[in-house]
Amino acid sequence: MSEEIVNEKEELIDPIAQSPGYDETESFVGIWGHPLHAMSVAFPVALTFCNFGADFLYWWSGELFWARAAIWAAGTAFLFGLAAGATGTAELLMVPGIRIRAPAWTHFVIAVLLLSLLGLNWGYRLQGYEAAVLPYGILMSGFNVLVVMVTGWHGGKLVFDYRLGTSKGS
């Protein structure tokens, strides 16, 4: 009886893995073989952390400089995030091996949420950057740090576990 169960497990076929283009995972959007999405995500990630750090330092010290730094970090995180999102969306839609996998769509949805939150954070601060920090600005930037960590973790799994959106070289 146990041999029948083992034989049944061997016969299982993943229908997604049988799809045409499943193995086509190399980046189409790059410069000289270097994927643009992988290169561009570092900026919005770092700036999201900088935004939270500047908010924290403003709360701790009361120095106006940190509130100004926070609005700049929030705005540039959002704008660089748009660029990273554009290259990531292009990869998702153009590469069949990426488009067919559900984890790529999970990463996409969370990244769109992150972009929305980054834009909200920046827009909120445009009404008055000093008054915006406490309490809602620091709460938004802290939540953005959590979302960027989840998004980055999913993106890292796509690259390191599935080798999606990478350049395999010639």
Rank of each mutant, 00 (worst) to 15 (best):
M140S: 03
A90R: 00
A84R: 00
H34W: 03
V6W: 13
V150D: 02
G169I: 01
E130W: 09
R101F: 10
G156V: 05
Q127T: 15
E4I: 10
I16W: 11
R68D: 10
W122N: 04
V29A: 11
I110L: 10
A86R: 00
A102D: 06
P44L: 02
V147K: 03
T151P: 03
M1I: 13
P35H: 15
L146G: 10
E11A: 15
V112S: 11
P15A: 06
S2W: 13
M149L: 14
W153H: 09
S170Q: 10
W66M: 03
S61D: 11
E24Q: 11
I100D: 08
W105H: 12
S2F: 14
W72L: 15
G128Y: 09
R125F: 02
Y58T: 07
C50D: 11
E26F: 00
A84H: 03
Y162P: 00
T151F: 06
S2C: 08
W32T: 09
V145M: 05
E91H: 01
P15S: 07
A69C: 04
R125A: 02
A42T: 13
P96W: 00
F78D: 00
S116L: 14
A74T: 00
L93Y: 05
Q127W: 12
H154Q: 15
G165P: 00
P44Y: 02
I5P: 13
A132D: 04
G165C: 01
L146A: 14
Y58W: 08
G156F: 09
F108S: 04
A132V: 06
A74S: 12
L164W: 07
I100V: 11
Y136V: 09
L12D: 13
N7H: 14
G81W: 01
A70I: 05
V95H: 01
S27A: 12
K168H: 13
I5Q: 15
G53W: 06
N121D: 15
P35G: 15
Y162M: 08
S61G: 06
T25D: 07
R99M: 08
G97L: 07
S170P: 15
I5C: 09
G169D: 06
A132I: 04
A42K: 11
S141I: 03
L115Q: 11
L164R: 05
A73V: 00
G97E: 01
T166E: 08
F65T: 15
I13T: 14
